[in-house]
Amino acid sequence: MEAVTFDLEKTPLREVNQYLHSDAAELDGKTVTITNPGGTHNIAVGLKADVDVVIDGHAGYYAAGMNQVANVVIEGSAGTGVAENMMSGRVHVKGFASNAAGATAQGGLLVIDGDAGLRCGISMKGVDIVVGGSVGSFSAFMAQAGNLVILGDAGEALGDSLYEARIFVRGNIQSLGADCEVKPMDEEARQILVKLLKESGHADVDPDSFTLLGSARTLYNFHVDNAGAY
Protein backbone atom coordinates (compact mmCIF):
# COMPACT_ATOMS: atom_id res chain seq x y z
CA MET A 1 0.00 0.00 0.00
CA GLU A 2 1.50 3.28 -1.12
CA ALA A 3 1.68 6.16 1.36
CA VAL A 4 1.74 9.84 0.43
CA THR A 5 2.15 12.74 2.89
CA PHE A 6 1.28 16.40 2.45
CA ASP A 7 2.27 19.10 4.93
CA LEU A 8 -0.37 21.85 4.79
CA GLU A 9 2.17 24.35 6.12
CA LYS A 10 4.19 23.75 2.93
CA THR A 11 1.67 22.65 0.30
CA PRO A 12 -1.40 24.77 -0.53
CA LEU A 13 -4.72 23.06 0.22
CA ARG A 14 -5.83 23.37 -3.40
CA GLU A 15 -2.87 21.24 -4.51
CA VAL A 16 -3.70 18.58 -1.92
CA ASN A 17 -7.39 18.49 -2.88
CA GLN A 18 -6.51 18.37 -6.59
CA TYR A 19 -4.25 15.38 -5.94
CA LEU A 20 -7.13 13.72 -4.07
CA HIS A 21 -9.32 14.33 -7.12
CA SER A 22 -6.96 12.63 -9.57
CA ASP A 23 -7.99 9.41 -11.36
CA ALA A 24 -9.66 6.98 -9.02
CA ALA A 25 -7.55 4.17 -10.48
CA GLU A 26 -4.37 5.99 -9.52
CA LEU A 27 -5.53 6.68 -5.96
CA ASP A 28 -7.10 3.28 -5.24
CA GLY A 29 -5.62 1.68 -2.15
CA LYS A 30 -3.35 4.60 -1.29
CA THR A 31 -3.04 6.21 2.14
CA VAL A 32 -2.72 9.98 2.07
CA THR A 33 -1.70 11.71 5.30
CA ILE A 34 -2.26 15.45 5.71
CA THR A 35 -0.13 16.98 8.46
CA ASN A 36 -0.47 20.41 10.09
CA PRO A 37 -4.11 20.90 9.05
CA GLY A 38 -4.31 23.84 11.51
CA GLY A 39 -8.08 24.21 11.23
CA THR A 40 -8.03 24.81 7.45
CA HIS A 41 -11.47 24.69 5.80
CA ASN A 42 -12.53 22.25 3.06
CA ILE A 43 -9.86 19.60 3.59
CA ALA A 44 -10.45 16.44 1.53
CA VAL A 45 -13.82 17.51 0.13
CA GLY A 46 -15.52 15.81 -2.78
CA LEU A 47 -13.46 12.62 -2.78
CA LYS A 48 -14.59 9.87 -5.13
CA ALA A 49 -11.81 7.27 -4.92
CA ASP A 50 -11.22 4.29 -2.68
CA VAL A 51 -8.46 6.07 -0.80
CA ASP A 52 -7.58 6.33 2.90
CA VAL A 53 -7.02 9.90 4.09
CA VAL A 54 -5.64 10.75 7.53
CA ILE A 55 -5.92 14.36 8.69
CA ASP A 56 -3.36 14.58 11.47
CA GLY A 57 -4.81 17.33 13.68
CA HIS A 58 -7.79 19.68 13.86
CA ALA A 59 -9.77 20.29 10.66
CA GLY A 60 -11.77 23.45 9.86
CA TYR A 61 -15.19 23.74 8.23
CA TYR A 62 -16.70 21.18 5.82
CA ALA A 63 -13.92 18.57 6.15
CA ALA A 64 -14.65 15.50 4.00
CA GLY A 65 -17.82 17.13 2.69
CA MET A 66 -19.62 15.37 -0.19
CA ASN A 67 -17.48 12.28 0.40
CA GLN A 68 -17.97 9.22 -1.79
CA VAL A 69 -16.24 5.86 -1.25
CA ALA A 70 -13.19 7.32 0.52
CA ASN A 71 -12.26 6.60 4.14
CA VAL A 72 -11.28 9.80 5.95
CA VAL A 73 -9.94 9.85 9.52
CA ILE A 74 -9.57 13.15 11.41
CA GLU A 75 -7.21 12.66 14.33
CA GLY A 76 -8.33 15.88 16.05
CA SER A 77 -11.59 17.80 16.06
CA ALA A 78 -13.69 18.89 13.09
CA GLY A 79 -15.27 22.29 12.44
CA THR A 80 -18.79 23.05 11.23
CA GLY A 81 -20.33 20.73 8.62
CA VAL A 82 -17.98 17.75 8.73
CA ALA A 83 -19.04 15.12 6.13
CA GLU A 84 -21.91 17.33 5.02
CA ASN A 85 -23.80 15.78 2.15
CA MET A 86 -21.68 12.61 2.28
CA MET A 87 -22.88 10.02 -0.26
CA SER A 88 -20.90 6.93 0.79
CA GLY A 89 -17.63 5.91 2.41
CA ARG A 90 -16.60 6.54 5.98
CA VAL A 91 -15.56 9.61 7.96
CA HIS A 92 -14.16 9.18 11.47
CA VAL A 93 -13.60 12.18 13.78
CA LYS A 94 -11.52 11.16 16.79
CA GLY A 95 -12.09 14.41 18.68
CA PHE A 96 -15.27 16.48 18.84
CA ALA A 97 -17.28 17.82 15.91
CA SER A 98 -18.79 21.29 15.71
CA ASN A 99 -22.30 22.19 14.50
CA ALA A 100 -24.16 20.51 11.64
CA ALA A 101 -22.05 17.34 11.48
CA GLY A 102 -23.29 15.07 8.68
CA ALA A 103 -25.87 17.62 7.54
CA THR A 104 -28.00 16.43 4.60
CA ALA A 105 -25.76 13.38 4.12
CA GLN A 106 -27.24 10.67 1.95
CA GLY A 107 -25.13 7.65 2.75
CA GLY A 108 -21.96 6.25 4.29
CA LEU A 109 -20.95 6.19 7.95
CA LEU A 110 -19.89 9.18 10.08
CA VAL A 111 -18.28 8.25 13.40
CA ILE A 112 -17.57 10.95 15.99
CA ASP A 113 -15.72 9.75 19.09
CA GLY A 114 -16.30 12.93 21.12
CA ASP A 115 -19.28 15.25 21.36
CA ALA A 116 -21.10 16.73 18.39
CA GLY A 117 -22.39 20.31 18.43
CA LEU A 118 -25.85 21.59 17.61
CA ARG A 119 -27.90 20.38 14.62
CA CYS A 120 -25.97 17.11 14.22
CA GLY A 121 -27.56 15.13 11.35
CA ILE A 122 -29.85 17.99 10.36
CA SER A 123 -31.88 16.94 7.32
CA MET A 124 -29.95 13.65 7.04
CA LYS A 125 -31.11 11.61 4.08
CA GLY A 126 -29.73 8.13 4.57
CA VAL A 127 -26.38 8.47 6.34
CA ASP A 128 -25.55 6.55 9.50
CA ILE A 129 -24.03 8.68 12.27
CA VAL A 130 -22.60 7.34 15.52
CA VAL A 131 -21.67 9.87 18.20
CA GLY A 132 -19.59 8.54 21.11
CA GLY A 133 -20.36 11.59 23.26
CA SER A 134 -23.38 13.87 23.42
CA VAL A 135 -25.13 15.92 20.74
CA GLY A 136 -26.29 19.54 20.97
CA SER A 137 -29.79 20.92 20.48
CA PHE A 138 -31.86 20.50 17.29
CA SER A 139 -30.05 17.34 16.24
CA ALA A 140 -31.72 15.25 13.52
CA PHE A 141 -33.98 18.21 12.71
CA MET A 142 -36.13 17.17 9.72
CA ALA A 143 -34.09 13.98 9.38
CA GLN A 144 -35.51 11.98 6.49
CA ALA A 145 -33.67 8.67 6.42
CA GLY A 146 -30.73 6.90 8.02
CA ASN A 147 -29.75 6.27 11.62
CA LEU A 148 -28.36 8.56 14.32
CA VAL A 149 -26.84 6.72 17.29
CA ILE A 150 -26.02 8.83 20.35
CA LEU A 151 -24.06 7.16 23.16
CA GLY A 152 -24.28 10.21 25.42
CA ASP A 153 -27.01 12.79 25.97
CA ALA A 154 -29.08 14.86 23.57
CA GLY A 155 -29.93 18.59 23.81
CA GLU A 156 -33.21 20.33 23.20
CA ALA A 157 -35.76 19.55 20.45
CA LEU A 158 -34.19 16.24 19.37
CA GLY A 159 -35.67 14.96 16.08
CA ASP A 160 -37.92 17.95 15.52
CA SER A 161 -40.21 17.43 12.48
CA LEU A 162 -38.67 14.01 11.96
CA TYR A 163 -39.45 11.95 8.86
CA GLU A 164 -38.28 8.35 8.59
CA ALA A 165 -34.82 8.45 10.21
CA ARG A 166 -34.21 6.41 13.38
CA ILE A 167 -32.60 7.95 16.45
CA PHE A 168 -31.03 5.77 19.16
CA VAL A 169 -30.13 7.52 22.42
CA ARG A 170 -28.40 6.00 25.45
CA GLY A 171 -28.24 9.03 27.75
CA ASN A 172 -30.65 11.76 28.79
CA ILE A 173 -32.73 13.76 26.36
CA GLN A 174 -33.32 17.38 27.29
CA SER A 175 -36.46 17.55 25.16
CA LEU A 176 -38.03 15.96 22.10
CA GLY A 177 -38.92 18.09 19.09
CA ALA A 178 -42.36 18.25 17.49
CA ASP A 179 -43.59 14.89 16.15
CA CYS A 180 -40.66 12.90 17.60
CA GLU A 181 -41.66 10.05 19.92
CA VAL A 182 -40.31 6.98 21.67
CA LYS A 183 -40.85 3.78 19.67
CA PRO A 184 -40.62 0.15 20.76
CA MET A 185 -37.23 -1.31 19.69
CA ASP A 186 -38.20 -3.89 17.07
CA GLU A 187 -35.79 -6.58 15.90
CA GLU A 188 -34.95 -4.76 12.66
CA ALA A 189 -33.95 -1.58 14.52
CA ARG A 190 -32.01 -3.59 17.09
CA GLN A 191 -30.02 -5.36 14.35
CA ILE A 192 -29.18 -2.00 12.77
CA LEU A 193 -28.02 -0.65 16.13
CA VAL A 194 -25.85 -3.71 16.86
CA LYS A 195 -24.24 -3.43 13.41
CA LEU A 196 -23.54 0.31 13.77
CA LEU A 197 -22.09 -0.09 17.28
CA LYS A 198 -19.76 -2.76 15.93
CA GLU A 199 -18.70 -0.72 12.90
CA SER A 200 -17.97 2.33 15.03
CA GLY A 201 -15.79 0.60 17.61
CA HIS A 202 -18.47 0.35 20.31
CA ALA A 203 -19.16 -3.39 20.10
CA ASP A 204 -18.94 -3.58 23.90
CA VAL A 205 -21.88 -1.21 24.42
CA ASP A 206 -25.16 -2.88 25.37
CA PRO A 207 -27.75 -2.23 22.62
CA ASP A 208 -30.54 -2.68 25.17
CA SER A 209 -29.39 0.48 26.97
CA PHE A 210 -30.69 2.62 24.08
CA THR A 211 -34.08 4.22 23.50
CA LEU A 212 -35.41 4.29 19.94
CA LEU A 213 -37.08 7.43 18.65
CA GLY A 214 -39.01 7.91 15.47
CA SER A 215 -41.63 10.04 13.81
CA ALA A 216 -45.19 10.12 15.13
CA ARG A 217 -46.15 11.05 11.53
CA THR A 218 -48.77 13.54 12.65
CA LEU A 219 -47.20 16.40 10.69
CA TYR A 220 -46.93 14.56 7.36
CA ASN A 221 -50.14 16.05 6.03
CA PHE A 222 -51.37 19.49 6.89
CA HIS A 223 -54.01 19.60 9.57
CA VAL A 224 -55.20 22.91 10.92
CA ASP A 225 -54.94 21.68 14.54
CA ASN A 226 -51.18 21.32 14.00
CA ALA A 227 -50.68 24.82 12.59
CA GLY A 228 -48.64 25.84 15.63
CA ALA A 229 -46.16 23.00 15.13
CA TYR A 230 -45.22 23.81 11.55
Binding site: G38, G39, T40, G57, H58, G60, G76, S77, G95, F96
Partner: peptide, 17 residues
Protein backbone atom coordinates in the same frame (compact mmCIF):
# COMPACT_ATOMS: atom_id res chain seq x y z
CA UNK B 1 -12.03 29.26 14.69
CA UNK B 2 -9.15 26.90 15.35
CA UNK B 3 -7.24 28.51 12.45
CA UNK B 4 -6.34 31.31 14.87
CA UNK B 5 -5.07 28.96 17.56
CA UNK B 6 -3.03 26.54 15.43
CA UNK B 7 0.25 28.44 15.76
CA UNK B 8 0.22 28.82 19.57
CA UNK B 9 3.13 27.20 21.43
CA UNK B 10 2.53 23.58 22.45
CA UNK B 11 -1.10 23.78 21.27
CA UNK B 12 -1.07 19.99 20.86
CA UNK B 13 -1.12 19.67 24.64
CA UNK B 14 -3.86 22.25 25.19
CA UNK B 15 -7.41 21.21 26.06
CA UNK B 16 -9.37 22.37 23.02
CA UNK B 17 -13.17 22.61 23.23
Amino acid sequence: EFRSLAHLPDIKNAKVF
